[in-house]
Design a protein around this nucleic acid. Structure first.
Lengths: 149, 149
DNA sequence: GCTTGACCTTCCCATGATGGGAGGGTAGAG
DNA sequence: CTCTACCCTCCCATCATGGGAAGGTCAAGC
């Protein structure tokens, strides 16, 4: 079973073009999401074979890897759209890119603070909870009180 | 305009029962979400007036505040369902509650680490970006490289 | 009694990013 | 020709929340 041997679709593949499955493996973005990104206009529509199969060239795959990496850094689709535009703009100012990045850092910090506040409160409450057979529990009492910490 | 003067719906209100709007104000949960919680079975179906209006007693409002507070601490609907069950169970073991809370703390910590890793990478990249008129930018270069930090 | 305004009801749709799956077509290998 | 491993589109689900339409109801003012 030559399962690991990918098929050689027509002439397109010989010219450096790959189908969506290959593009997915090469970029780390699922085929499902590649189609989705195309649908929402984040990436331009892929070329098609006569049979309607999407085809991707090296630069298309590169763009998908860019998107993948930006997602890993927590950028939203909208922000990634802006980053892609800047990437494609040879006359961009790096200050624009830096501003986007730092705005995102600020957003990350906001979320981190939020989660840390939750964590702090819960740790505090759990610390005072015996955690034994008895029903008495400061955690439930806090929730029942309903007031923010 | 006596706008701030809430209406006195029939006898129900006199008996300590309020409509969904009052329950929303008193609990901090939006009317929309109260209906949703009922629909998904997180809270029992509210009583109804003859006209079909939902009515809430003090303990119902109390339960909604409990849910609100749990949401503020980042618990999921599913976890809140378990917390409510424990709250209602006079024979609960506080160890059960504590376990739920600490599992949630672990989840919060996982998310915090994830966000902090993103933040660290971005800070690093932004630090090396001039942020001026020129297009050169380590941030875009990193994204284009596509490799995780 | 009738109007008015502020409420309530249900039902559907949207978000953001992702996955699952059905139903049907196609490429390449044996 | 058949089999496998793809591809295609379309719909639905997640999770918690909000928006809004269309229609009913209640209390108050006239």
């Amino acid at each position: 079973m030559p399962a690991a041997r990918p098929p050689e679709h027509s002439a397109a593949r010989r010219a450096g073009y790959v189908d969506i499955g290959e593009a997915a493996r090469a970029s780390g973005v699922s085929a499902k999401m590649i189609r989705h990104y195309e649908e929402i206009g984040l990436v331009p529509p892929a070329g098609r074979t006569a049979a309607g199969y999407r085809v991707y060239g090296p630069s298309d795959v590169h763009r998908l890897r860019f998107v993948k990496r930006a997602r890993e850094l927590g950028f939203s689709m909208e922000e990634i759209g802006k980053l892609l535009a800047l990437w494609n703009d040879r006359r961009r100012k790096s200050s624009e890119v830096k501003r986007l990045a730092l705005e995102h850092v600020a957003e990350l910090e906001r979320k981190i603070s939020e989660l840390e506040a939750m964590r702090g409160t819960l740790m505090q409450l759990a610390h005072h909870c015996h955690g034994d057979q008895r029903p008495d529990c400061p955690i439930l009492e806090d929730l029942a009180r309903g007031e923010p910490a």
